[in-house]
């Protein structure tokens, strides 16, 4: 019963999220340009090719996967896929090709004989989390898929219907694994002649959104808080005032992570290799933060830190 309640709660949260504009392609950027494999790295030269706006598996067997050039932690990924008869592919999340046990695969599978259980069907986090609402698996037609990695919450939907909701913190087989890594598409994992096709691959990188990143400083998980810190440092000047606000937080973890993030932002801006206008932006945000800070400890820290980029 308690589990059911949690489900309903999570579903409501997702609905809220969706109604606030996530269903549109606003804030989404293409991961696949439809012409070539820019943004992607082939694990094997023959793994995938691009034909008429589609990425198609070319070879078969393990090791023919393709990965994004960049790592992603929190994001919403949208794509369309089509499988041949008995086709077997998947979408890799938080993957590190050098550490095979990192991350997981959202399975893409045409019906097999024998019948594959819900832990290994389309939409499952393969071998880790079964689907709760099994999608249609008819081969030869296009499906849309959305994968949301929102801190510990991973949600998969197919053709707009949620198939899988996973609280990663409760998945024992994923305990201690990183919450970031490459996104990948599995090469044809079936036999010769079978294939998978992908098109319209879009991503909304939540770690590039200041409000989302700021909330990450309150995350109870050390690794996710660290990712928020790294994301904040990448965002730079625009995070300074919100982070300075956290310096007087009652939450010790948020406070100390913010302190470190501020140091790292200013330190990066202070690099003589970086242009003076990036330093000027940081300097201006620091000055504003000093003016609005109420505690002496915060003001002292910010004033000292400003010394790194003094004119």
């Amino acid at each position: 019963m308690a589990k059911m309640k949690k489900y309903i709660l999570i579903s409501c949260i997702i609905l809220l999220f969706s109604s606030s504009g996530l269903s549109q392609n606003r804030d989404f950027v293409p991961l696949f340009n439809g012409r070539d494999l820019t943004n992607w790295v082939l694990a094997a030269p023959e793994g995938f090719e691009v034909i008429l706006g589609e990425m198609i598996t070319r070879s078969y067997g393990p090791g023919t996967d393709i990965f994004t050039a960049k790592s992603y932690g929190n994001f919403i990924l949208r794509l369309e896929f089509l499988l041949s008869e008995v086709g077997n592919s998947g979408v890799f999340i938080w993957r590190n090709p050098a550490i095979q046990s990192n991350g997981f695969e959202v399975q893409l599978l045409a019906p097999w004989t024998p019948w594959r259980p819900d832990l290994y069907c389309t939409g499952s986090l393969y071998g880790h989390v079964a689907v709760s609402n099994r999608p249609d698996e008819t081969p030869g037609i296009w499906y849309s898929m959305e994968i949301t990695c929102d801190r510990e919450l991973v949600t998969v939907s197919v053709n707009g219907e949620i198939t899988t909701i996973a609280d990663i913190d409760t998945v024992e087989t994923l305990a201690g694994k990183p919450f970031t890594g490459l996104i990948g598409l599995q090469g044809n994992h079936g036999a010769k002649g079978q294939y998978a096709k992908f098109r319209n691959i879009y991503i909304r990188d939540l770690d590039a959104e200041p409000d989302y990143v700021l909330k990450g400083f309150h995350d109870k998980n050390d690794q996710r808080r660290k990712l928020a810190r790294i994301a904040a440092v990448n965002l730079g000047a625009e995070m300074i005032q919100p982070l300075a606000g956290l310096l007087s937080s009652e939450n010790t973890a948020a406070r100390s992570s913010a302190r470190q993030a501020l140091f790292d932002i200013v330190a990066r801006a202070s690099d003589p290799e970086n242009p003076e206008n990036s330093r000027a932006k940081v300097r201006s945000a620091m000055n504003k933060s000093i003016q609005v800070s109420s505690t002496e400890t915060t003001v002292n820290y910010l004033e000292w830190l400003s010394g790194l980029i003094a004119e």
């Binding site: 140091f263 330190a267 990066r268 202070s270 690099d271 003589p272 003094a310």
Partner: peptide, 25 residues
């Protein structure tokens, strides 16, 4: 370590070359 960059030290003048932030620290 704190600045996350390679630094060049001027032993004669007891300061870093071309890095005011490093010298500040």
């Amino acid at each position: 370590f704190r600045l996350k960059r390679r630094l060049k030290w001027d032993s004669q003048n007891r300061q870093f070359w071309d890095d005011p932030a490093a010298n500040f620290l």
